[in-house]
Design a binder for these strands. Structure first.
Length: 505
RNA sequence: GGUAGCGUGGCCGAGUGGCUAGGCAGAGGUCUGCAAAACCUCUUACAGCGGUUCGAAUCCGCUCGCUACCUCCA
């Protein structure tokens, strides 16, 4: 009967293909297919992985919030990602790590896949609908290669298969995503040796012949080998989302060459574009420099959560990190600093305190204040409008702080609670809770048994302290409050005479 | 060199041709046994120089500074 939310709040997304904001139209609503390039699992998850996962988690959550039915595919790269893609001479990243640590490649894959998932769970990132691996889709990748060969955009050379970029660029529109022209690439490329197999240095491998010592190898029509890095995403997105799907995402650093190659492969194999909307999030910098493996300045998530890193003055909770990431728009660069993390930590406390206060409001409508009701309703409306404007979490959070101030005012009785009508109060309640919890995913951890025990103990101390206060034994009451504070529990004496508490770490 | 982008108040970070977010930090106040939290008030910015305009931080040009991609990276 009622129209779905996505019709009421049309979504604008910045499409990297056109470099413009476009109105999002799903191919087959309410279904939405979304693919995100996940990690290559050969090392510990770091801040950059967190940003990618959190940014797209919120996109996934908001689409779902708007009543789309989203199939969200986020892959795990466990083969084919070489150290030097262009020369094709680099070692496979997973293989190299396995060799260095004297482990089987699949042990490396298993170890870092679990670490990645564990870190994301702490960050309250929802699991994707499908999390496929490259090694689990060798057959599909071979099929894509065969299709590209049949269409004449690839060639076999000594047991390897390469994408014929020059031919493709002559006949199709290459470089639409990155704005790069093949001629520039060729003229700007460095001299490389041992490229006899390739017709052009920028032809990329679809299938690589395995050298005798190479461990990760599979049978194929071209002999034993392994798939090229760009290919897996084409094969897996096609399998689970179709030849053309709605949204393809990834980090800005993947735009070229990875995503450009995906577009070329898809056109060459299926004569279709893979995705209607390409969404790229910006990267995290540290002291203004890109965080990267090669610079050695990256901070792993474990280090961030424990504080054990030379650059960190303290530990930061996963929710603080999540909030820090979401305070900036996904297309803006984010520079890491302790000051910024600390500010985020405090801001998050303010927001979650307001959320707790909301639950304490006992609303009994009386005479309505129209100005106030209109104001609250407008704030609620803005939450949708900002998120529907290219997932602007920064503006959403600003509005949530404003609603939080209203909630505090209502609780302090500086604003008359009864002057809100029932609909407005309900809407404020659902919007505030929904956007903080369901959309931004900033909800506090669920309480378990030990949590309940802890809360019982705190309540006991509060009772003892309040008795001391009633007896004007402030030495005792202050001692309880000070010691609880040093344990990370902040007591607050309310005007009404009761005492509440919150956790400060 | 080619391509893309950025420069906002003490800090972080939105946004936009006129209504000039938000958070953190700082100052003062209300409340409180004292605190904490909350609330109120204050500090008012858009690199520089030109141009378009009734009006620009927002559009255009130039200058300076910074970053990313063009090699692997989220």
């Amino acid at each position: 009967m009622s129209q779905p939310s996505y019709d009421r709040y049309p979504l604008a997304v910045t499409n990297s293909l056109s470099r413009k904001k476009e109105i999002f139209k799903a191919i087959n609503p309410p279904l939405v297919g979304m693919y995100l390039c996940g990690p290559t699992v050969y090392g510990d998850p770091h801040l950059g992985h967190a940003r990618s996962a959190v940014n797209f988690d919120v996109i996934f959550r908001y689409l779902t919030f708007l009543e789309y039915k989203v199939r969200y595919v986020r892959n795990i790269t466990d083969v084919g990602h070489l150290e030097d893609e262009v020369a094709g001479t680099g070692e496979d990243k997973v293989s190299k790590k396995a060799r260095l640590e004297k482990l089987e490649p699949m042990e490396i894959v298993q170890l870092y896949t679990y670490r990645y998932r564990d870190a994301l769970r702490l960050l309250n990132v929802l699991p994707p609908s499908v999390e496929p691996t490259a090694t689990g889709h060798i057959l599909e990748q071979i099929e894509v290669i065969q299709s590209i060969l049949e269409h004449g955009y690839a060639y076999e050379s000594d047991g390897s298969v390469y994408f014929d970029l020059e031919k493709y660029a002559q006949q199709k529109d290459y470089g639409q995503l990155s704005g790069k022209v093949l001629d520039d690439l060729i003229s700007g490329s460095r001299q490389t040796e041992g490229l006899d197999e390739k017709r052009s240095p920028h032809d990329f491998a679809l299938w690589k012949k395995a050298s005798p010592e190479h461990i990760m190898r599979w049978n194929s029509p071209w002999g034993e080998g392994f798939p090229g890095w760009h290919l897996e995403c084409t094969a897996m997105s096609t399998k689970y989302l179709g030849e053309t799907f709605d949204i393809h995402g990834g980090g800005l650093d993947l735009q070229f060459p990875h995503h450009e190659a995906e577009i070329a492969q898809c056109h060459a194999a299926f004569h279709k574009q893979p995705a209607n909307y390409w969404i790229h999030h910006n990267l995290i910098t540290i002291d203004g420099q890109k965080m990267s493996k090669s610079q050695g300045n990256f901070i792993t998530l474990e280090q961030l959560f424990t504080g054990e890193h030379p650059l960190l003055v303290q530990a930061y909770s996963p929710m603080t990190v999540r909030f820090f990431i979401l305070q900036a728009h996904y297309r803006s660069p984010v520079d890491f600093s302790n000051e910024a993390l600390q500010a985020a930590e405090k801001g998050l406390v303010r927001l979650t305190n307001a959320l707790a206060t909301l639950e304490k409001l006992d609303h009994q409508p009386a005479e309505a204040d129209e100005v106030l009701n209109r104001e609250i309703n407008q704030l609620c409306e803005q939450c949708y409008l900002h998120m529907s404007d290219d997932f602007n979490t920064a503006r959403l959070i600003a509005v949530l702080f404003e609603i939080g101030s209203k909630i505090n005012g209502l609780y302090n009785q500086q604003i008359t609670l009864s002057s809100l009508d029932s609909d407005t109060f309900q809407r404020m309640h659902n919007t505030f809770q929904g956007f903080i919890g369901e959309v931004l995913g900033l909800n506090a951890e669920k309480s378990d048994d030990s949590q309940q025990q802890k809360e019982g103990l705190i309540q006991l101390l509060i009772d003892i302290r309040n008795k001391a206060r009633a007896d004007k034994d402030f030495a005792t009451s202050d001692q309880i409050r000070d010691q609880l504070k040093s344990l990370g529990v902040q007591l607050k004496d309310e005007k009404s005479g009761g005492t509440t508490y919150s956790f400060t770490n």
